[in-house]
């Protein structure tokens, strides 16, 4: 596979480039030399603050959130053997953001800043576990996606309820932020809160990736090959739940990157779910950094939310991928 050998390096270079470019965007125009100086820690103190505490964390947050969603999407697609499986579509993101909102609404976040990512992760794990349980009972991925739609609607309804009862406009706007998804005004502090969980999730998915290849043949054949199916389900669900939950804890619900990136990557890795994990993560990270750059470049009075832009690109792609599928697969 010569194509897959250059895929990861190219994506890494492009991602670094995109994060670098993102450091130029903002209300204060900075020249190349000033950005470079600020990044290396030698420039003007004001420049350093702008780059290190505003622009770089924002770009890195976009990348990390994308990467976590991309790898979760690729892994869930491998587990469920369907290219339409994704944290957003399956209701995992919505349920995570419901729990995150819940922790804000009831002031649980005041106990410890760790509560927000932890609650988002609990929401994500609850949804993924429910889906995995359903997956044991039904072979039909359509059923699973419908369960996901139900989960999303239910989470949406509870969020609406909380918004309805929101005590003040401030907490209302806070909740809207979690629903729409954004990486604006993120600092390294928030990144450090999400990163351990993301890293743990990514690591779990990476270690157990081999079983996803085996599942290509179906569950019966995969067990025949020597795969411990139950273990694989638990670990993929756990990994995807941790990574998705942490990303929602950092940026709110951002949909569809987890579908688009693996879909583009798959032909380059011989359609092998295991080999699609890392490039999917890199590409999804790259896409979100670029989308976040786009959000800032668009001349709009209110800055668009990243989640809105991601959905505007991702939802049509989802419909297109769904329409491409032949009836045979399900």
């Amino acid at each position: 596979m010569t194509r897959s050998t250059w895929l990861n390096p190219v994506l890494v270079v492009l991602s670094l480039l995109a994060v670098f470019v993102a450091c130029f965007l903002g209300s204060t125009p900075l020249s190349l030399t000033r950005v470079l100086a600020a990044l290396s820690g030698t420039g003007d103190v004001g420049d350093q603050i702008v780059v290190w505490s505003i622009r770089l964390p924002r770009a890195l947050a976009a990348f990390l959130v994308g990467a976590a969603l991309g790898i979760s999407g690729a892994a869930l697609q491998g587990l469920l053997r369907n290219p339409l499986a994704e944290p957003g579509v399956l209701g995992v993101s919505a349920s995570a953001s419901l729990f995150a909102t819940f922790s804000i609404y009831f002031g649980i976040v005041a106990i410890s800043p760790w509560m927000l990512p932890v609650f988002a992760i609990i929401g994500a794990l609850a949804a993924t576990a429910l889906l995995a349980l359903a997956a044991i009972r039904t072979q039909s991925v359509v059923t699973l996606i419908l369960i996901g739609v139900g989960l999303s609607s239910f989470a949406g309804a509870l969020m609406s309820l909380m918004m309805n009862l929101a005590p003040n406009p401030f907490s209302l706007s806070d909740m809207i932020n979690w629903m729409l998804g954004s990486v604006a005004n993120r600092s390294f502090r928030e990144i450090w809160l999400a990163l351990p969980f993301m890293a743990a999730g990514v690591l779990i998915l990476w270690i157990t990736r081999r079983g996803l290849s085996a599942l290509t043949l179906g569950e019966e054949a995969a067990s025949g090959l020597g795969l411990d199916l139950r273990r694989q389900r638990v670990f993929t669900v756990l990994g995807a739940g941790l990574a998705t939950g942490a990303s929602v804890g950092l940026a709110g619900a951002i949909g569809f990157v987890g579908i688009v990136a693996p879909h583009i990557v798959r032909p380059f890795v011989g359609h092998d779910p295991a080999r699609s994990l890392i490039p999917s993560a890199l590409l999804a990270g790259l896409i979100l950094v670029l989308a976040d750059i786009g959000v800032r470049l668009l001349p709009s009075t209110n800055e668009l939310k990243l989640g809105v832009v991601a959905a505007l690109i991702g939802a049509p792609a989802f419909i297109w991928i769904a329409m491409q599928r032949r009836a045979v697969h399900d």
Partner: peptide, 9 residues
């Protein structure tokens, strides 16, 4: 080798 099912990918 179980009964052959369609491949996922």
């Amino acid at each position: 080798l179980p009964q052959i099912r369609p491949m996922a990918w």
